[in-house]
Design a protein around this nucleic acid. Structure first.
Lengths: 341, 341
DNA sequence: GCGTTTTATGGTAGCGCTGTCATAAATCTT
DNA sequence: AAGATTTATGACAGCGCTACCATAAAACGC
């Protein structure tokens, strides 16, 4: 019976059957050549490859996914693309997937677990080979999907908790704690903290708690904090420090949730003629390149974002099946002494 | 005949048939409810929706794509994720797709047309609804695929050329030209240029050419240029300016291909005690937030990256079919006077 | 040289969904 | 009220590919 349905296809879009016919082999053999799977005689492979080139054949991944109940897609759910942190993670993922057949599909959750859940479900419709998300905190529904799905799962950035499958990152609580210890050791005593308004940034909160507990151990506590009523940015840091110092001029060090804001803090000091480090210490988080290229390199903690993304993707590729036990990979962090605290 | 092939599926993964059975309707009716397509009685829709919730049904997009010869994926090919420019574009795209069924699939080309071609072909295997790429310059093979494919195409950033379907961006040649005019008007005469090593960044080259022709019109020309032997970064700008000034101390203004490098230039001046603007003008490109949050806001050109991404994605969604005539949308640019030139 | 394993290939039956066409019921015309 | 239109639903056949099983030939073991 003749085809009835071709109307909606390009008439000249070749299929595997066309390739097989031209190469004089069966469809399944052609399929094996395309997927580089199973034993194929060299001569046969060459014939099929020639036919593919000749026809300009492009495999239909939808059909492949349907038939094999799996795909070469990797779902990546990131909280934000507004600062360079998550693009760095994405770059790491991309680097690991470069020479593989896998392709990342990106979603941005805006730090909202409900949006994360919604996007996750829509991604699952593609039967991804793996799902990568940030943090260990998800909605119950999302968590259920992650646990019961037939795909690998990597949770990035944070390792303080119980992962579904793999966690790659660092302890943000410890980073905050080490920040506190370091600054106390340096002689700072009157601590300020400049927060931003994203309350669901669990990592920032964990660092904050770590900082507080380090201060407590030293018999200190935060003298002042200010929450900038908007998202994190350099301007936010600059304005927040201004407000903080106006109310508490005696502060001798201010910790920021990230480098962007900390650089804003430095810019405020430059503008207001405050001697950074001598008069007021500034400490950030992330270790962005730009902070290190400043005349006075920012004191901060280097988070290994590229490495986290790359390691996670590589780890996911190791086995298609989820192993019995969970994996936690600590990529650690480095304190960058810098010149601002 | 009983199913033979279920072994590789989760046994409890419900299909449309399960939903239809539970709701007491045919598969196609259930399908119409899922896709919100075609006329459905309210009562029927409600019954199907209930069944979907009850079963936790997740549609299989691979099957849908196969049957309809189309997908809800939008392929996005970006040159880089290393600075915030393309993540900004991606954010714009993401914002436009937020409430739609479309999902971006990201590829990074590293400014290499051959990698772009390779990734494009692998993306076409998913029969995307649209392809978004940067620039108007592609390999002949890529161009052929773009022209003959059954999907919309948007080429971003640049509008100096002939698009395949839609182009959204600005004239980089003109931006460079306006930069030159502006600086000449300000009284600068001895121009330097600090380049980076990515020779395939066509936009940067176009700006460079525009700058040169503006200088020529004013009877001037570049006194000196330096090509930093590495990728663009703040450090690159800082080092490049150092080298440039060592060889040509008489320069009174240096133009950088982007804000990252220009900020590095400012950092060099701060470090070397050079009075920015009075002694040496610094001019960038992009209008990054961080440059504007500095005590001395960077003089630069604001490129509307978020808008470009958002506009392109919105435009692509307007019609599934490629219209007869090509569209060019000029999002323009603003000169930010700043305080550094 | 005769079983046994390995290598290379093919036939067939779906994977889960949607396009097409058909039909029945409800609503609108004049 | 009879025909024309719109609204709501369904039967069915594939979309292009791969899992599963089968088969035949070649290589191997002793």
């Amino acid at each position: 019976m003749p085809r009835k349905r071709n109307a909606h296809r390009s008439p000249d879009m070749p299929t595997l059957a066309d390739v097989a016919r031209l190469a004089g082999v069966s469809e399944i053999t052609a399929s094996r050549v395309v997927r580089a799977q199973g034993p194929i005689a060299d001569a046969t492979r060459a014939r099929v490859l020639t036919a593919i080139t000749e026809l300009g054949y492009i495999p239909n991944r939808a059909a492949g996914s349907l038939a094999s109940a799996g795909s070469t897609l990797m779902s990546v759910l990131l909280p934000s693309l507004s600062n360079i942190v998550f693009p760095d993670v994405l770059r790491g993922i991309h680097t690991a997937l470069m020479e593989t057949a896998f392709q990342p599909v990106i979603g941005v959750t805006d730090y909202d677990p409900l949006i994360e859940e919604r996007i996750l479900v829509s991604f699952l419709a593609w039967q991804p080979a793996a799902v990568i998300l940030a943090g260990l905190h998800h909605t119950p529904t999302a968590r259920r999907h992650l646990e019961h799905g037939r795909f690998r799962v990597a949770e990035l950035m944070d390792i303080d908790g119980e992962p579904v499958d793999i966690a790659v990152g660092m302890s943000h609580r410890q980073a905050g704690y080490e920040t506190g210890k370091h600054l106390v050791r340096r002689g700072y005593r009157r601590f300020g903290y400049a927060r931003h308004n994203v309350t669901t940034d669990d990592r920032a909160s964990a660092r904050y708690e770590g900082l507080c507990s380090a201060l407590q151990e030293a018999g200190l506590s935060l003298v002042a904090e200010h929450c900038y009523p908007d998202a994190s940015s350099t301007k936010a840091g600059r304005d927040a420090l201004g407000i903080l110092l106006a109310a508490h001029p005696a502060l001798d060090v201010v910790v920021f949730p990230n480098d962007d804001m900390a650089m804003g803090g430095i810019f405020h000091c430059m503008h207001a003629g405050i001697a950074v480090k001598e008069k007021l210490g500034i400490f950030g988080f992330n270790g962005l390149d730009i902070g290190q290229a400043m005349p006075m390199p920012l004191s901060t903690i280097l988070s290994k974002r590229f490495l986290i993304g790359k390691t996670a993707a590589e780890k996911l590729l190791e086995s298609r099946e989820r192993p019995a036990e969970k994996t936690i990979i600590n990529t650690g962090f480095d304190i960058i002494e810098g010149a601002t605290a």
